[in-house]
Write a protein that binds this DNA or RNA. Structure first.
Lengths: 345, 345
DNA sequence: CTGTTAGCGCGTTCAG
DNA sequence: CTGAACGCGCTAACAG
């Protein structure tokens, strides 16, 4: 039934040459006669030969596979990053093994182990919501397997990171809210253990400070920012319960912000008149809700491309030097209706 | 620097037993003494042993890896399906190799070949937009590698499929529009080569027919349905140009429908009063736009789970019989404001 | 330009 | 219950 897998030996026998020659011919080795090569290629196709990756991997001690660990697959941002990575990886002949931590450190640890055992040639990671330490990645460092963090990064020794300037972005968007006349701006964000949220929080506070506004902890709402579970209702409720009620809010996730806007509206609050709203990511949803959401354009697809390129360059030995580099991609403020208390520009 | 990879031989030497025993011990073989097993496990951990997947794969002729080919990663629907697949796969000890066809048959063929050469144990596919024939999957059939189609399927011999009842869903949502008083309902959908679009088209037509409405080709708009490129403007324009203008439209993608609604509004058309709109998928966006979008709930996460379970069961030999089965998941109409010409229920 | 040889690490007969 | 020996398919010396 399942016809036998054919090997270089079968080809060698058929052509009455040595397996080594076949191996070389198949891999387009320069030191092989054109004609021999052609013969090998032809008969290989004819016989339905396919190279055996394991045998090759076993020999070469590499897999041409890159691992990716993300927090969730069902997020626009993540999907875009992966799309970028997949493009670059496949262009360079690498496969991607993707797994999701589901925002849990325990699962992230398990994923890391699986990746390690799968002997990926390199690993790209965006940390889970609650990851406390990153010792589960130590085996990679120890074994010299390139490890790269993106988005939710950790300054691990010898690990490149790909990020945006979260501080600056938050500073800009908060400043924008202030210029629109907001005096009391709340901040809805994720766990401050994650750089992305911590940096944005700092940028937000700095903007307040630079503009003579006072920050107090009651303005801060920490939330899972997961649009699929209904935390959004909680967050919106917290906003509404603040006393005095804020006149602006900076929410570090567009989809979540969109849900919050809906709750606010249901509670009779006008956006942006009563509360101006700003999001983060430039998720397509930001353009589709009414009012359109002011946000930060996060170059997610590009981040995937850059991360993959960086890792692959390193794998190919084309750049051993940029190991500890931090690559910062350009993000930018996008002003839309949800924050325009003063009307259109 | 990179400390040497340790093997069963190293463990064997350290314990002064044979590699065979170590191999068995590690795999919890019944015919090995408890104590020996324990010793092996302990020292393996201590020495930082990790099993070599290739050597094992080379020997066993399987990879514990499942391939997935999707049209795009950057789609809510796809992300949800993958999330479901990843969960099931990782629970069963399988890795997922994911690649995207970017809606191009050429890329899909390349992806299929890569998967084939990577020797995935099974493959799950949702076809690209323009795939004409599926002969690029023949090698899998020939070699007896389980192949499964989901969503955008093809009735290939011996391939299970996982789908929803697209005909019925379309019939229901169209009927709903008609009940709301729509007399002239347009249909925006994808390439009719794909079952999902063809079936929905048929369901739509049947609903018209059953309710005494006439279908004509000018009501049909074929579009890539890709929200990231701007085809939406074209589609909306075509809707507006129809003469007489339709009073309802069934668009087979929520995100795309949301974009179209925006264009319609910009053109001064009221939804649902002038044109009632219905989408498809129950993308979160459908709840966030104003008016909320009437849609069909597509159990995407569940589809991922079911597809992966089906394939894995088959791989484990627990069910050779369901090969040609077609699994139909339950979808359901969700009525929201965008179609309620008659006001709230 | 081509062939010979050897070994990557594991699992599995077959013998004890 | 354990060990010896072989081979999965490929590639990299080393020789010619």
């Amino acid at each position: 039934m399942k016809n036998k897998e054919i090997t270089i030996y079968d080809i060698a026998k058929a052509l009455d040459i040595s397996p080594a020659t076949v191996s070389r011919g198949l891999r387009d080795h320069p030191a092989i006669n054109r004609k021999t090569k052609k013969k090998i290629m032809d008969i290989a196709k004819e016989m339905g030969y396919r190279s055996n990756t394991f045998a090759s991997s076993l020999r070469l001690k590499r897999t041409n596979t890159i691992g990716v660990i993300v927090h969730r697959l069902d997020s626009y941002f993540v999907a875009m990053v992966l799309a970028g990575m997949e493009k670059v990886a496949s262009e360079s002949g690498y496969n991607l093994i993707i797994s999701q931590s589901l925002e849990s450190m325990a699962k992230e640890v398990a994923n890391a182990n699986t990746m390690f055992n799968s002997r990926v040639d390199g690993l790209m990671v965006s940390l889970a919501y609650d990851t406390e330490d990153v010792s589960h990645f130590d085996p990679f460092i120890t074994k010299g397997i390139p490890l790269l963090f993106f988005d939710r990064v950790y300054k691990h020794k010898n690990c490149p990171t790909v990020v945006i300037d979260n501080f600056k972005s938050a500073y800009e968007i908060t400043t924008h809210l202030i210029k629109q006349g907001c005096k009391r701006i709340a901040h809805v964000t994720g766990d401050l253990k994650r750089n992305v949220y911590a940096d944005r929080f700092e940028g937000y506070k700095k903007a307040l400070e630079d503009n003579g506004l006072v920050y107090s902890d009651e303005l801060l709402i920490i939330n899972y920012l997961n649009e699929h579970i209904g935390h959004n209702v909680d967050a919106a409720q917290q906003l509404l319960n603040m006393n005095p009620r804020p006149d602006g809010v900076f929410i570090t996730n567009d989809a979540f912000a969109a849900y919050c806007m809906r709750e606010l509206r249901l509670a009779g609050v006008a956006v942006p008149q009563d509360i101006a709203v700003a999001g983060f990511n430039n998720d397509p949803i930001s353009e589709l809700v009414d009012p359109n959401l002011t946000t930060i354009n996060y170059p997610s697809y590009e981040m995937g491309e850059v991360a993959a390129k960086t890792l692959i360059n390193h794998l190919k030995g084309e750049s051993n030097m940029l190991l500890t580099d931090s690559i910062v991609l350009k993000s930018e403020l996008i002003i839309r209706e949800s924050s325009l208390k003063k009307g259109l520009l």
